[in-house]
Design a protein around this nucleic acid. Sequence first.
DNA 1: AAAATAATTTAGGCAAGGCTAAATTATTCA
DNA 2: TGAATAATTTAGCCTTGCCTAAATTATTTT
Lengths: 220, 220
Amino acid sequence: MKPSTSIQDYLKRIYELTENGSPASTNDLARELGIKPASVTGMIQKLAAEKPALVEYQKHQGVTLTATGKKAALEVIRHHRLLETWLVQTLGYTWDEVHEEAERLEHAISEDLERRIAAALGNPLRDPHGELIPTADLKMPLEISTPLSALRPGQKGTVQCVKAADTELLRHLESLGLVPGARIEVKEYSPFDHNLTVKIEKKASVLGLNITNKVFVEET
Amino acid sequence: MKPSTSIQDYLKRIYELTENGSPASTNDLARELGIKPASVTGMIQKLAAEKPALVEYQKHQGVTLTATGKKAALEVIRHHRLLETWLVQTLGYTWDEVHEEAERLEHAISEDLERRIAAALGNPLRDPHGELIPTADLKMPLEISTPLSALRPGQKGTVQCVKAADTELLRHLESLGLVPGARIEVKEYSPFDHNLTVKIEKKASVLGLNITNKVFVEET
DNA sequence: AAAATAATTTAGGCAAGGCTAAATTATTCA
DNA sequence: TGAATAATTTAGCCTTGCCTAAATTATTTT
């Protein structure tokens, strides 16, 4: 049966927090979900007890998704990213406005509507932030880009993806020209604070780690 | 604060059931909502106790909406009808397919999305079934059409609205050509069973009350 | 008008999904 | 290593919104 809205949110956050390969901690999950850690413990115990289990969980060891849980998470993420794309392309939303709206709609759309949206958009590969959209058969495509923070002077590339949900930050990035498709070149690197001086299209900016680790680039 | 999804559903159904001027009964409401009468009693007691109250309620006397409750109901109905229109016009849904989808989405869209959809559609007056869409300031426009069942031989008109949600029935009506915009003329009336023989565009059909009281016509 | 039936309400319960406070387990630091 | 701190879990409670069973009130029938 289809997981509740609440469970869908848990699974989506766990997916995101475990993308780096390590289990998600109770605390991190609570912070992401905006609820208390004690509540998280209760829920993940429930999710681990379902049959089939949606998560793998050992006390004090954090939580990861099972194959079943991962499928459910990718379903939600697919909904979210298709919706963001749709709202931007058909209703003139900007990339900093769509997040909340998609956050609610992702739980309400049917598989039929999902298919229709995907078809109307021509089965897009990425959403307005450049994030990859899971395919209809719920596989996450391989990300080929690397964090901007990994580039060094002389390296050039094209921005593929901006992993941020915060409205303020997105507006700032846009004002810098740091949007998917932008051509960039790293000019200087400061080993002291890891700041990069980057030429974006025409003008140069100094960017801190808080930005360069959220912007993903395909080197050229 | 914004009413819960559940409460929004109650208010919408109460609005519909009280359109005829009389209060909604516990039983009817339970049937419309697909829950047990006892549950309805509990909820309407709660809604009547809110401040400000959303419904007017006296034991055993049925329930009606207060001004506050009516506004909330019209908000939901506006969402529903705008969504139906949008899904039909932009994603190729047919009028018999949109109901369920809109039923879930109506609770999830923001006021901002509502405005954008309305604007994109050019602030439509009616939805795909011809039902009037409450205005942005939450007034229900005056319905100028009358039930087809009230017409008698010789009278002609244009179908304005089809008040039905059932997929089967909608498909049947479409196959008869009984859709908003259709020109009709009443040829015969049977006082015995209230059947009408109606010429729809070119061909004539005999229609029972179960149909003629759901189709609304503007006489010409 | 009494009896039968139908509608409604009350009472008590349950599952979901939060919360706080207290207990426990890990981790870090001196 | 032992103490302090941080993370996690347990226990118990709350609200929402539904349920069933039993009691009550209305309505209809005879």
